[in-house]
């Protein structure tokens, strides 16, 4: 399958944080959920993809092109929603339309105004008069209105109520169906991703922990709930991490089917991305 985005061995060093050999691939037409706790490196990775930060090592290819060499060409086809970064709030959607017409060759004013209408956003109101949810919708509409082939979304649903979140996620899904494009969506609200993401890439403390299809992850991985005695009978190679709670052990296993065949432990729960994140971050290895 053709990859729209390829990140290989991306490294970036700050005084108090290091991005270590981040590598993942986003196939064409897919939605990838990019998960990890706050400060794990999601935003830094997205900023590197966009060259907002520059002094990094590694290779990034978008649409098969080097992101530094062909930056201008590539950016014509990328739509972006960045956490807390947008147009100055004294501007109106009308101003955004005028601005973007002069920036993107493919800017589609009709699509922009149709979307504003669909989401009941008034074109002549200043952004500062919008609620957080309305503002987020405007950011997303702005990112979609030049028919991008790749959407890079950094925490696009954070701070939204469940109804607004559902609307926004629906918007992404219809976008991917209509436009045949790909989305890299970073979020720490993992329940959103379980519904729409085809792939999950998990970053922790600047390192990619796993990058798999969502189905593979949710079907194969599992949480074994067992006693201390049962836990001690499990071989180290059969689990990834474990957490000791007040009454039991919660053990993250990479292949629940194989585990069931090997061990006579009854309780193996389906995993959620939340469980996965918590166990990967807070769990112990030995």
């Amino acid at each position: 399958m053709e990859n729209i985005l390829e990140v290989k061995n991306l490294c970036k060093t700050y005084d108090n944080f290091v991005l270590k050999n981040v590598t993942f691939y986003l196939p064409k037409g897919m939605i990838m959920g990019f998960i990890g706790e706050n400060g794990a490196g999601k935003t830094t990775t997205i900023k590197a993809i966009l060259n907002i930060i520059q002094s990094y090592r590694g290779e990034i290819h978008i649409f098969g092109l080097d992101n530094r060499k062909y930056e201008k060409k590539i950016k014509e086809d990328i739509g972006v929603v960045l956490d807390d970064m947008f147009f100055p709030e004294i501007l109106t959607p009308n101003d955004i339309n005028q601005t973007m017409k002069g920036i993107y060759q493919n800017w589609d004013s009709k699509k922009f105004y149709d979307s504003l209408k669909e989401f009941s956003l008034l074109p002549n109101k200043q952004i500062k008069t919008f609620s957080k949810g309305m503002r987020k919708k405007l950011e997303i509409i702005t990112a979609l209105s030049h028919h991008p082939k790749l959407l890079l979304l950094d925490e696009p649903t954070s701070g939204l109520d469940p109804v607004a979140r559902a609307e926004v996620l629906e918007l992404f899904q219809s976008f991917i169906e209509e436009e045949d494009c790909s989305i890299l969506l970073s979020s720490h609200i993992t329940t959103d991703l379980e519904h729409i993401a085809d792939y999950i890439t998990f970053i922790n403390d600047g390192e990619i922990v796993l990058s798999k299809t969502t189905d593979e992850l949710l079907e194969q991985y599992g949480i074994v709930k067992c006693t201390e005695k049962e836990f001690k009978s499990i071989e180290k190679k059969d689990y990834i991490k474990y957490k000791k709670t007040k009454y039991e052990y919660e053990v993250l296993v990479p292949d629940k089917k194989a585990f069931k065949e090997k061990y006579a432990i009854a309780v193996i729960d389906k995993i959620t991305l939340d469980d996965l994140m918590v166990l990967m971050i807070k769990g112990e290895e030995e």
Binding site: K47, L50, N51, I52, E71, K72, K73, K75, E76, I78, V80, L82, D84, M85, F86, F87, P88, E89, I103, Y104, L152
Partner: peptide
């Protein structure tokens, strides 16, 4: 509004 960083995402 961190426009400078946002504007870098444009061509």
């Amino acid at each position: 509004n961190k426009w400078d960083a946002y504007s870098i995402s444009f061509p």
